[in-house]
Simulated scan of single mutants.
Amino acid sequence: MKKLLLTLVFLLTVVVLAACGGSDEEAGGESGDSGDNADAEESESSSEAGGKLAELQESGTVTVGFANEEPYGYQGDDGELKGAAVDIAKAVFEELGVENMDSQLQDYSQLIPGLNAGQYDVITSGMAITPDRCENAIFAEPEMVYGEGLVVQAGNPLGIESYEDIANNPDIRVSVMSGATEVGYLETTGVSDDQVTTAPDIPATFSAVQSDRADVTTATEMTLRLAMETSDESQLEFVENFEQPDIEGVPSWGAPAFHPDNEDLRDAYNEALQGLKEDGTVEELLEANGFDPESNSVAAGEVTAESVCSGENY
């Protein structure tokens, strides 16, 4: 009887130990799998949390779309990307640990579509913030403020001194850079669509006036003044007594724009930009590109992108 009891106890002990051993092995396997899955999920989450800025910092390069409009963003004779907006963006991204800029020239009207198609990380050509543009891109805080200007045929034979003058004479022909805010300004002032033709860049609008395919071209004042420095003044004339239009959007607040999904990058840009405004770097870069640091710069917090997008400061 005792032997039978001892045998039963022994067998029960073996079964219990075997069961415990099996549970430990299975638990260990499950625990290991859970740990691997957790690590993978955590890694994926960290990658997502890093966002676009982390991606650019890792690669060391930011892809920038720009239009050929001096002095904001343009391609120099050496093929390099230049201009006030470009220099400011470069300084900001260096602050963020992104040293290299891969610059890509594009027609102005294709900058935002290209941004949203993923061709660029940022677009910067002193682009004016407008409520319409804010529906398709997110803007950094304004870096500069500027007004409008006119260039006409030498001698200003039609006496054009304002957008209203153009609207009041249906025979006046205007050449404007495609995608520029001036297209909307002219329309708002009453200029008819059949008076306006578009061109890919400022040299092309100047060429239209010189060849008598247009009577006048309009763009920002700084753009036209600088373009006049390398133009034939026997054929063209900058309108010094131009009357700034009293319409929404003038003056314009210029800033770079980002894809709507890249708020982290835009927010980091704003933070670095504020520091460069406060230490005077932005004013220095504007002045180096021909701007007046007093009249063309925007102090930190003076005007926000949100207030312009909402129409409050537009």
Rank of each mutant, 00 (worst) to 15 (best):
A154Q: 08
P251D: 04
M144Y: 10
D212W: 00
E237P: 01
A227I: 02
E283T: 15
G97E: 00
E302P: 10
E240K: 14
V209Q: 07
V152Q: 01
N156V: 02
S297D: 12
N262M: 08
N136F: 06
Q244T: 07
S178A: 13
T205P: 14
V151F: 12
A18W: 13
Y108G: 00
D107C: 07
L285R: 08
M228P: 12
V16M: 14
E99G: 03
S46V: 14
Q75L: 04
P203H: 01
A214E: 09
E69R: 08
A305L: 00
S46W: 13
A40G: 02
W253F: 15
E287K: 12
A54E: 11
D212R: 07
A27N: 10
P293R: 04
G179H: 05
A204W: 07
L273Y: 05
A38E: 11
T61L: 11
G190H: 04
A140V: 02
S31G: 04
T304R: 01
G311S: 06
D232N: 07
V282L: 09
E240H: 14
L286K: 06
A299H: 14
A227T: 05
E233K: 03
R173D: 11
A180F: 12
G301L: 07
D121W: 10
S307N: 00
G60I: 13
E135V: 06
G60W: 12
G76M: 03
V152S: 07
Q110D: 13
A67D: 00
N156C: 03
E48M: 09
K277R: 15
R133Q: 00
I172K: 01
T220R: 08
Q244K: 11
F206H: 05
A288H: 06
R225S: 02
T205E: 15
A38M: 15
R173F: 05
A137M: 05
K3T: 15
E80I: 02
L226M: 15
S31N: 05
V62A: 14
L96T: 06
L158R: 13
N270A: 07
V98E: 07
E25P: 02
L158C: 03
S211D: 14
R225W: 01
A49Y: 13
G83Y: 04
G190T: 05
V92G: 03
A67N: 00
Q119S: 13
A214L: 04
V92R: 10
E283A: 15
G83C: 05
G97Y: 03
Y185R: 05
V98S: 06
A305I: 00
D39R: 12
I112F: 03
L265Y: 12
V308M: 02
L11R: 12
D107W: 08
E42A: 15
Y314H: 09
E243D: 08
G22A: 15
E187Y: 14
L236H: 00
G275R: 09
E302K: 11
G159C: 09
S211V: 11
E161Y: 13
G83A: 02
M101H: 07
E182D: 09
N313F: 01
I112Y: 03
Q235K: 09
E143H: 11
Y72T: 02
A288L: 05
G32A: 13
D107T: 11
